[in-house]
Design a protein around this nucleic acid. Structure first.
Lengths: 97, 97
DNA sequence: TTAAAGTACTTTGAATTTCAAAGTAAATAA
DNA sequence: TTATTTACTTTGAAATTCAAAGTACTTTAA
């Protein structure tokens, strides 16, 4: 092992992204509005954090219309779930040393 | 409760600062060299993160000489220990739902 | 039926944060 | 003596965070 924080994933190392992932690993889907309300963040801020997770292929983004309104649904990918599990284990290990 | 991440402390919301605090809550003191080696970070980077924690009064900085060499010892303050406990509880709660 | 307000995002770029390279000052090794 | 190492600090470029403003509708109200 290199050092005590080397298994902490930079992509999840921010409270908003940690929150997004925490929501997505227990809910098959969450839409923009739901994430925004659960996290208490501004629109632009949420958009940039979801974009960062999407860029790493940790989450999936699906755009559709519900009735006549646009709707964006986020879900976690297999890669994201695996990486997040590792990250959580790394945090737990760090906090329990 | 406002939202699911509102108890996460921004001051600890970075892997290096999380690592510094994790070390300091279990070791009465840690010096610059020890933190640097345990965390695997560059000097300047470590300095800026310890400075950020010091600014919040979460850690104490004591400068002295060991033999004829400068030595900087860091320790956690009561305020830091309490705030960190809250932070860890917030993370655990977030990850457990 | 036109106007005003609301919804669901996206874009933009200023402010803040992160980070390592370079600097400082003294100790030790060659 | 000169070079290298140690233990930090300073600096500022680069990356990230964040909210204000923008876009493109939809809904409500007069």
């Amino acid at each position: 092992m290199k050092n005590i924080i080397h298994n902490i994933n930079k992509a999840f190392d921010h409270r908003i992204r940690l929150g997004i992932m925490s929501i997505l690993v227990v809910n098959e889907f969450a839409d923009f509005k739901m994430l925004k309300e659960l996290l208490g963040v501004t629109d632009g801020n949420l958009a940039s954090h979801t974009k960062a997770l999407e860029k790493e292929a940790y989450i999936n983004v699906e755009k559709s219309f519900i009735g006549r309104k646009p709707n964006t649904k986020y879900s976690v990918t297999k890669k994201g779930r695996d990486a997040f599990k590792k990250h959580v284990e790394a945090i737990e290990k760090l906090l329990k040393q």
